[in-house]
Simulated scan of single mutants.
Amino acid sequence: MLDMIPNIKSSLSGGRNPMLDYAVWPGWRLLMQDAGLATSPVLRRAQLPADLFARLNVRLSSADFFKLWEAIEAEAKSIDANLPAPLRIAQVMSSDWFDPELFAALCSSNIGCAIDRIAKYVRLIAPMVIKIQRTTSHATVTIDFLDHTTPPPSVFLAFKLVFFVQLARLATRSKIQPLSVSLPYSPNLEADLLTYQSYFGVAVTNSPVTTLVFAAVDVDRPFLTENHKMWLFFEPSLRQRLTDLDRTAGMAERVRSTLLESLPAGEVSMQVVSRKLGVSTRTLQRKLQDEGTTFQQTLDTLRDSLAHHYLRNTTMSSAEISFLLGFEESNSFTRAFHGWTGKTPQAVRSEICSDENRQGTDSC
């Protein structure tokens, strides 16, 4: 059973950093069949090897993985234009469908515990950051990515939201309804908004960050599938593979991953990052130097990438972007951005809007 969990070895990644790749496990073939999706046309659409789902330990780049999801969506729509792929897959999700993420979650005591576990081990299967923030009345789940160079398609974001809701319903055997659902809109998604609204029970709104909010009572609702003994058997392998992943990943990528989680809280100092990584600042500096970079360069590169992502995909103000990037004030962000690009954030946003107008894809 544990052999079916994706490990960090790459079949297709060609030596890329495994922290930025996505795992594809052989069980996808069963999933596709259950969902009524033929694998051959999907893989042809995605321009991927015809035996991809028969291989072990496959990892794809962001670009190839997202092409795969777009191909799955296209194939699903060719069968039924009114049923998006995430909802088609949700119809066949069951406790005997062995997906590592689903299995680990089903062993949990409730959806809150399940999301905590997924958040801890998600890097084994995807370069994602999943967070859950709780209050007395609700819990907010957010999904972000370590790599912002290739934006994920809306079908993949929608699938992750559907996955969490379907997981909660499957494990509790109750019609749990989220309080709110939001993700970045795309033209393809907008055509399916009413269908997704019918599934979730609430409207799907447009936001720069993929977000799902559950009522506190639903977060703590007991899972009927809880299996603590199985989890105790299952977790050591996951824990070891996470350790192996960190060991093989470069220090710059580990710093980048830590900063991505820490930026909105303003925790951007080398001391804070060193403590979270469990190394001294001297060791951190030395390892970054060995990789041809510095802490400040890594921080600036991440901030620059995220800033362009927010400017291109959201209508957030410079002040709002400044906060998300961990700057104390908006002017500091503007000065830093000008240092990276030679332009102001407003100028770059105007250029992006002009380009999109010329291409007929205006989202400004």
Score class of each variant (00 low, 15 high):
I352K: 07
S330N: 14
T298H: 06
Q297F: 03
A319P: 02
E351V: 03
R335N: 13
D355A: 11
S330T: 11
L302K: 14
S305H: 15
S354I: 03
L311E: 00
R303E: 01
E328M: 08
Q297I: 04
L325M: 10
F323S: 11
I352S: 01
D304M: 10
T315G: 10
A319Y: 05
E320G: 07
E291Q: 04
M316N: 10
Q297Y: 04
R349D: 01
D304S: 14
S332W: 06
N357R: 13
F337S: 01
Q297E: 12
S305R: 13
A347M: 10
P345K: 01
Y310W: 09
T314Q: 01
D300G: 04
R358G: 02
G339F: 02
Q297S: 09
I352A: 02
L299P: 00
D304K: 15
P345D: 01
L299S: 02
Q346M: 05
F333W: 11
A347Y: 09
H308P: 00
S317A: 11
H338S: 07
S350H: 12
L325F: 04
T301H: 04
L325V: 09
A319Q: 12
N331L: 06
T301P: 01
N313D: 09
G326V: 02
E320K: 09
S332N: 10
I352T: 09
R312I: 00
L299Q: 05
D355W: 03
S330W: 09
E328R: 14
K343H: 13
V348C: 06
F323R: 14
E351M: 06
F327L: 10
I321P: 00
A336G: 11
N357E: 08
G326W: 03
I321F: 10
F337A: 08
D355E: 13
E320A: 13
S350Y: 06
T344G: 13
T344Y: 10
L299T: 07
T314I: 02
G342T: 07
F327Q: 07
V348Y: 08
T293C: 04
Y310D: 00
R349K: 15
M316Y: 12
E320I: 00
A336R: 08
Q297K: 14
A307L: 08
D304L: 12
S322C: 11
S330V: 09
T341F: 04
N357H: 12
L306M: 13
T314E: 01
L302H: 12
V348E: 06
T315A: 05
